[in-house]
């Protein structure tokens, strides 16, 4: 600001581009699109405060919270597999799923506590019962669910208290679907454009992703001859996940863009390939001899597990990116206002 001189003929020596451009040009930042990526929505002009974000971006650590989303899905769907396997007398599948559910939910709780700024105060989550807070409801849900999975796993491994174990398995299966899908509400219930705008489809994406992860774990670890349900679950879950994710991106307008840029783009491409490939491989492996099938099921399981993880990390990072760029906050709101003004909304000045 001090390098220029004000003379009779105007300002001399001012560095170009130092003033805040307002109106039409303001806030435009040149963005590099990935190769061959088409803009889903035409670029819109908008104003901003020196390109600064409007929102404060999530302070959550990616490994903790994306991991939490992933492990919750894995656990919830595993509990369903466990109950199904128990009911249809597939002891190997049941044990894998029970151990998977209890292990995943323990890790997910550890991740949640680790992410807190004050981990010692974790128990404050249960200080109140607050229906407007998905994290509060989720904590209560996990407080009920986690012990059930552990009881189910413990009864299975020790072979004692079979009735109690079976009851716990059924109870965990009743709560499992909620554990897998509530995390979608958790992140949608924010002002982050790429999370909030997807609140209709995201629970279905997470339900599908949880199913593929649980199926992946079962395929990799359970006996081959009991893998039928997991193979079918992989196919159904992959279809649900990929289908609703496409639908979500189509419906959410500009907020879908961060899913196709930078790091999220790579993660989500990988998720698509791994999930679809894993499900296909699992389906094929089922038709072959048991010996060759083992290795294939292992590969399919690994692909499904990592595909589901990649999806959660992709969704997480896309949300953070959408909070960091004022464009995703301003443009849709501006459009909404203008549409409202045209239809004669009186409360807009």
């Amino acid at each position: 600001m001090t390098e220029s001189d004000v003379t009779r003929d105007g300002v001399k020596g001012a560095r170009p581009g130092r003033e805040a451009v307002t109106g039409e040009q303001a806030g435009r930042r040149r963005r590099r699109r990935g190769r061959g990526e088409k803009a889903m929505v035409p670029d819109a002009e908008f104003s901003s405060y020196y390109g600064k974000p409007i929102l404060n971006k999530p302070t959550w650590k990616p490994l903790d919270i994306a991991g939490y989303l992933y492990l919750g899905g894995l656990a919830g769907a595993s509990s369903l597999l466990a109950a199904g396997a128990q009911a249809t007398s597939r002891p190997g599948l049941a044990r894998t799923a029970k151990l998977g559910a209890s292990g995943a939910i323990s890790l997910s709780l550890a991740a949640l506590v680790h992410d807190l700024g004050r981990p010692a105060r974790f128990i404050n989550m249960l200080r109140v019962f607050k229906p407007t807070s998905p994290m509060n409801l989720g904590s209560w849900l996990l407080a009920g669910y986690a012990p059930l999975t552990m009881a189910a796993a413990a009864a299975d491994v020790t072979g004692r208290y079979r009735v109690a174990g079976a009851t716990a398995t059924v109870g965990a299966a009743a709560l499992g679907p909620a554990v897998a899908t509530y995390t979608a509400v958790l992140i949608s219930d924010t002002a982050v454009p790429s999370w909030h705008e997807g609140y209709r489809e995201l629970p279905f994406v997470f339900a599908g992703s949880g199913a593929t992860a649980a199926a992946g774990l079962a395929l990799a670890c359970a006996p081959v001859r009991e893998s039928g349900p997991a193979r079918r679950m992989a196919a159904l879950g992959a279809a649900l996940e990929l289908g609703s994710f496409q639908l979500m991106k189509r419906r959410m307008g500009l907020a879908a863009e961060p899913y196709g840029l930078g790091k999220p783009r790579g993660l989500l491409r990988a998720a698509e390939a791994l999930t679809a490939g894993g499900a296909a491989l699992a389906a094929c492996a089922g038709r072959e001899s048991v010996a060759g099938g083992r290795a294939r099921l292992l590969a399919a399981g690994a692909a499904l597990l990592s595909g589901s993880a990649a999806l959660r990390f992709g969704v997480f990072h896309a949300g953070v990116a959408s909070a960091e760029d004022p464009r995703y906050t301003v443009v849709p709101q501006r459009e909404r206002l203008e549409a409202g003004e045209r239809s004669g909304r009186s409360d807009v000045l």
Partner: peptide
């Protein structure tokens, strides 16, 4: 504001996950 709608969708998704699992068996 969208919270009731969010939970409605989550419940529907949870139901479809349960349905999907049942179908697998």
């Amino acid at each position: 504001r969208d919270m009731p709608d969010m939970w409605r969708h989550a419940v529907a998704a949870a139901a479809s996950l349960a349905g999907l699992a049942a179908l697998s068996f």
